[in-house]
Simulated assay, not measured.
Amino acid sequence: MKVNFEQNEQLADDDIRVTVQAAHLSQTVIELIQALEARQQSVDVYPITVDERVVLVPITDIIALEVYGTDVTLYTIEATYKIRGVLKKILGKLNQQDFIQIAKGSAINLNHLQSLEAAFSGSMTAFLSNQLKLTVSRKYLPELRQQLRM
Rank of each mutant, 00 (worst) to 15 (best):
A118Y: 04
V3W: 02
I102W: 04
N4D: 05
V3A: 06
V86K: 15
V54K: 14
Q40P: 01
T135H: 06
A22Q: 01
K133L: 09
E9T: 07
I100T: 10
I63C: 07
Q7N: 08
T73Y: 09
Q146R: 09
V54S: 13
G69F: 05
K82E: 13
R145N: 13
A118G: 10
K104I: 12
H112W: 01
N95Q: 02
A22F: 02
Y75Q: 12
F99K: 08
E66C: 07
Q114S: 14
G105M: 01
L128H: 00
R149F: 00
E37G: 05
L128W: 00
E117C: 12
P142W: 03
E9P: 02
Q40H: 09
Q147T: 07
L11F: 03
S129A: 15
Q21L: 11
Q146D: 03
V3S: 03
Y46H: 04
L110E: 11
A119P: 11
F127N: 14
T135G: 11
A35E: 06
S115I: 12
A38Q: 05
T60R: 13
L132A: 11
T60W: 02
K139R: 14
N4V: 13
A79P: 10
T76M: 00
N8I: 07
A23W: 00
L128M: 12
L110V: 09
Q147E: 06
L91I: 06
V29T: 04
L74K: 01
L32M: 04
